[in-house]
Design a protein around this nucleic acid. Structure first.
Lengths: 195, 195
DNA sequence: GACATACTAGAGAGCGCTCTCTATTATTGG
DNA sequence: CCAATAATAGAGAGCGCTCTCTAGTATGTC
């Protein structure tokens, strides 16, 4: 029933991702996405009711895709390997997903979608929940292992430092150099395990 | 000769800084700056020929203001103290200049001014030169002292890590907690001096 | 083959923003 | 007090963007 789609939601989000990654959110208009996709703007509004909804969907899709590996890394039975693995995941994922990493790390949610669309319900609230829970249980594992379980320290070692380590490269649009893996590993160990 | 100014350039930049810091660059229109200052938009265009010129001026003023302390810290005769001091300066300056720090750390230049105005000449090119030169000579001092002189390491320890430590708080709009000083100090020492 | 349906296609209304332009007002030097 | 000047004041032209609306087109079902 009905004709087959020429422009799928995913294809539109892919185009949006390209445009955001190389022009920034401010230059990402429905028109520019349409041009990149060689589609009329009407076809885009057929899938996404508003610009904010489109950009919010892009954000969600990108965040989801990046979470998987982090969760797996934290599940490692050895606490220290789990910590280092989670920290390194950010770097590795950035290397293998340059465009998506640029979106996730160089801009904040509010810069993509000015207003979070009501249609998305509590999607935003639940989006980071798996990661938050994983970090919560992981913090307890750290405490049990005699490592630092200070939330500030954990966030610093597992999120902020890896983020900072890749940022410079992402801004330049190039893959992070190998050396940053070493720096992230070293910092993570020092901060959490004092080794 | 002529009437005295009601709205000085600096007052306009102050208003712009407030608006950027709490609404982001995209919401910072000439109208919103004017409203915050209770001035008509014409008075703003009397001082700044374009939005880009205004935002670029704000960027320059903010960057200049933050550089001073970094340069002083790096001039310390003891290499290790100089390194730690430079790294900590970012944190301390963020604490004492929350609004300006939000502008400098949460957004990039291109997000403020889409096109760098030609009127500003090579201001942009020379803006960071003092800091770059200081970091260059400082890297040689590190090498002479037997510390790590890898440019990636130096940038990581002196810029990226402090930035990472502070970002979370700046996003939340609060001053960075005391604990981050310790984390920055620890990381800086470990990465550069291995202690 | 005809009908319902899912989608493409793009013109244009409306809006908010930048920037221009002209009129007016305050201040200073002679 | 009187020019000359430096600045305020705000209306509105023009532009690009979002979003709407209507018409047309391909595809599956009976």
């Amino acid at each position: 029933m009905g004709r087959t789609a020429r422009f799928s939601s995913d294809a539109i989000l892919d185009a949006a991702a390209d445009v955001v990654a190389d022009g920034g959110p401010a230059r990402t208009s429905i028109g520019s996405i349409a041009a990149h996709l060689e589609a009329p703007s009407g076809s885009i509004y057929y899938r996404f009711a508003s610009r904010d909804l489109l950009m919010a969907s892009l954000w969600i899709r990108t965040a989801r895709r990046s979470q998987q590996g982090a969760l797996e890394a934290m599940a490692h039975p050895d606490v220290e390997r789990a910590a280092v693995g989670a920290a390194l995941h950010v770097v590795r994922w950035s290397r293998s997903h340059l465009t998506e990493a640029r979106i996730l790390m160089l801009y904040r949610r509010e810069q993509l979608a000015a207003e979070w669309p009501g249609e998305l319900g509590d999607e935003l609230a639940t989006l980071n929940r798996p990661l938050e829970e994983a970090r919560h249980t992981f913090t307890r594992r750290l405490a049990a292992a005699g490592a630092s379980a200070n939330p500030t320290d954990v966030a610093f070692a597992l999120v902020d430092v890896p983020f900072a380590a890749v940022r410079r490269s992402l801004v330049a649009g190039t893959a992070p150099p190998r050396r940053v893996d070493e720096l992230v590993r070293l910092t993570c160990r020092t901060v959490l395990f004092g080794t």
